[in-house]
């Protein structure tokens, strides 16, 4: 009896928008997950050759090594301004920034608020991991009350160090912002929802509706002093209650779009 040749079907592969290199990210870090989601969305929308990414300063400073598309790299906090420059001279290209919480919500708060207020037609991927990762785990604007970091060793005392910033809620108050949501990367269900949100954000840009941002709750096991499993548990138990996962602003024109 002649055995029929087994038919192979590829069900999962590296996105074309992702380069085949090893990243510098720590084991268990969710930057890799976030990168992959962005790359998958760009592949699905077939816009890789029309996209310019803007890397920031922080752990994702080398993002341009991992994305297979044109990239520029901004000074600390200035990615939304740099993205504005690219987009204004190339309005038919897709422009996105990829920024951490120190970059976007501390040193770059002026640039992100102004870009959102202008309704700049760019997409922002915002990684909130409640600390400064690259410099070794210092307190960030997103560090939770009581959270110990290398610069708040006794825990964040809100009387002295102030309160965390809920960036998505803040930006959603601006008329120029058309799609502002928060998602999390701590389990498969939430990762799938994060991907849908990233797709919606790029669709917002495609439709010329203005500013879009997806805030992603992420883990930093190394600086948090946790195993990856513990870190994901902590996102769910500590971060999600403070940073609710929600759609804070969705332009009416997006209402009927389904991913």
């Amino acid at each position: 009896m002649v055995q029929a040749a087994l038919e192979e079907q590829i069900v999962y592969s590296r996105p074309e928008s992702f380069t085949a290199v090893q990243t510098h990210y720590c084991p268990g870090c969710t930057h890799g997950t976030a990168h992959r989601l962005v790359a998958e969305v760009i592949d699905e929308m077939e816009i890789r050759e029309k996209t310019v990414g803007v890397a920031s300063v922080g752990c994702s400073v080398f993002a341009y090594n991992y994305f297979n598309m044109d990239f520029v790299q901004a000074p600390h906090g200035r990615a939304p301004a740099m993205a504005t420059g690219v987009k204004r001279v190339l309005p038919d290209r897709f422009v996105f920034t990829y920024q951490g919480d120190g970059d976007l919500a501390s040193i770059g708060m002026g640039e992100i608020v102004a870009a959102a207020a202008r309704g700049e037609n760019i997409t922002v991927i915002f990684i909130n991991n409640a600390n400064y990762g690259m410099t070794g785990g210092q307190m960030a604007p997103t560090t939770l009350p009581g959270q110990q970091t290398s610069s708040s060793p006794n825990g964040r005392d809100v009387e002295v160090m102030g309160f965390p910033i809920r960036t998505a809620e803040l930006l959603s108050t601006l008329d120029g912002a058309s799609y502002v949501v928060r998602r999390s990367l701590h389990d498969p269900k939430n990762i799938r929802m994060a991907k849908k949100a990233i797709r919606m954000a790029f669709e917002t840009q495609k439709q010329g509706l203005g500013f879009s941002m997806v805030e992603l709750l992420s883990v930093c096991p190394t600086n948090w002093g946790m195993t990856p499993y513990q870190a994901n548990q902590w996102v769910q138990s500590a971060m999600v209650p403070y940073y609710p996962l929600n759609d804070f602003k969705v332009h009416p024109a997006l209402a009927n779009f389904r991913v």
Partner: peptide
């Protein structure tokens, strides 16, 4: 930085 991005 807008200049930087646009000039790139």
């Amino acid at each position: 930085n807008m200049v930087y991005g646009a000039a790139c």
